[in-house]
Computed example of a mutant assay.
Amino acid sequence: MVGVPQSHTGWTFITSHARVLAAIADNPNARIRDIAARCRLTERAVSRIISDLEQDGYLSHTRDGRTNNYRIEPDKVLRHPAEAGLSVASLLSLLVQDETDRIRKPVAR
């Protein structure tokens, strides 16, 4: 997959659950294999994360032949008390770029 960053060691700001949710928001028809490659996770880990997200009502899916069509619940509130009142939509607004914003813009300092 072109443009996928190299694996990283150490801590990061974004959890695997948030990465998977963002990958699905970017492509609701993505295969688990593609989500795993983008998020640098195993397919098994992505399957478990999707199961977690579905179990808690953040995500649902329907089957269209052999393809899963995922639907994110944007109004669902984040789980941690520190993010009380923040919705999935507010999280995704930080993680998912609009197609027009995909060109890297310089960071103001």
Rank of each mutant, 00 (worst) to 15 (best):
M1K: 10
M1D: 14
V2P: 15
G3N: 12
G3K: 06
G3D: 09
V4H: 10
V4P: 00
P5T: 03
S7C: 08
S7E: 10
S7D: 14
H8N: 08
T9G: 05
W11T: 04
I14F: 09
I14M: 08
T15Y: 05
S16G: 03
S16R: 08
S16Q: 08
S16T: 02
S16M: 02
H17V: 01
A18G: 01
R19A: 04
V20M: 02
L21F: 03
A22F: 00
A22D: 00
A23Q: 13
I24M: 04
A25L: 01
A25N: 07
D26M: 02
N27F: 04
P28V: 01
N29K: 13
A30Q: 06
A30G: 10
R31F: 04
R31V: 01
I32P: 01
I32N: 12
R33K: 12
D34Q: 09
D34P: 02
A37H: 08
A37R: 07
R38E: 12
R38H: 09
R40H: 11
R40M: 07
R40E: 10
R40P: 01
L41F: 10
E43G: 13
R44P: 00
A45L: 05
S47C: 06
S47V: 01
R48N: 04
L53W: 05
L53I: 04
L53S: 05
L53K: 02
D56L: 11
G57H: 03
G57C: 03
S60Q: 15
T62R: 15
D64E: 13
D64Q: 14
D64A: 10
G65K: 02
R66S: 14
R66A: 13
R66V: 06
N68Q: 13
N68V: 01
N68S: 14
Y70K: 03
R71G: 02
I72D: 11
I72N: 10
V77E: 15
R79Q: 08
R79F: 03
P81H: 13
A82M: 02
E83M: 13
G85Y: 11
G85V: 05
G85K: 06
L86Q: 10
S87W: 05
V88I: 07
L92V: 07
V96Y: 15
V96F: 14
Q97E: 06
Q97F: 13
Q97A: 12
E99V: 06
T100H: 15
D101S: 12
R102P: 00
K105L: 08
K105P: 00
P106Q: 15
V107C: 07
A108I: 09
A108E: 07
